[in-house]
Design a binder for these strands. Structure first.
Lengths: 106, 106
DNA sequence: AGAACATATCAGTGGGTAGTGATATGTTCT
DNA sequence: AGAACATATCACTACCCACTGATATGTTCT
């Protein structure tokens, strides 16, 4: 059974995933490594917003980046991230309606 | 590839998991079904706090409840929830340090 | 060197939400 | 019926965090 400390870290990990911008970024990165601008185009988010969130995701070791010339390529750092997203989809397949209706948060 | 709508729902699902109280509740429920009071004792949270979060988790179909006399037993609704928590632990095993250091949120 | 492009950083603000306390509802005793 | 227990509901407040806009840093051209 996870300790309190591990639980708090897990809370923080999930908080990293509980933002629509960050999740959109992780989602477009599932296909392949992308530059910041490509991420901006595909998500429709502003550049500074994407960059801010990338800093967060990078700091949390959820993505890694590689500078190629003046472009910076980002990709998922770990296969388990995609697995986690997949598993979340599977769970959602069964609880989507409930989650959708829940009024406690948006 | 998940649609925007699915992504938003996933965001909401993760938001459900991104609170230390809710995660603590889900965590103690992994062992077995518990009454509200047992959850209160094991998590150290206040009764109203636990009850509020249980309402949220119940609404999201993440837990189910059964009334037995004056006690209400709660349990996880779906095996994938525990799987998701396990997978998060596995991912954390590799990114814990980064997550821990990240200053973007607490 | 300077211009154009690509990305990062930072401070400020507004909106959302978690926790508390009081109270309501529901159940099982005597 | 009434008391004691178990749980749920609700309104309020304080805090946290996501987005924006401006600007800084870094890179590759001519």
């Amino acid at each position: 059974m996870p300790s309190t400390k591990t639980c708090d870290l897990k809370t923080k990990l999930f908080r990293g995933l509980s933002d629509s911008s960050r999740l959109a970024i992780l989602n477009v990165l599932r296909a392949k490594a992308l530059t910041v601008n490509e991420i901006v185009e595909r998500t429709g988010l502003s550049q500074s917003n994407v960059s801010n969130h990338l800093a967060c995701l990078r700091c949390c070791d959820l993505v890694i980046h590689e500078q190629h010339g003046r472009y910076v390529y980002y990709q998922l750092s770990n296969d388990r991230i995609a697995q986690l997203l997949d598993l979340a989809d599977e769970l959602l397949a069964e609880v989507a309606q409930g989650v959708s209706q829940c009024q406690n948060y948006s």
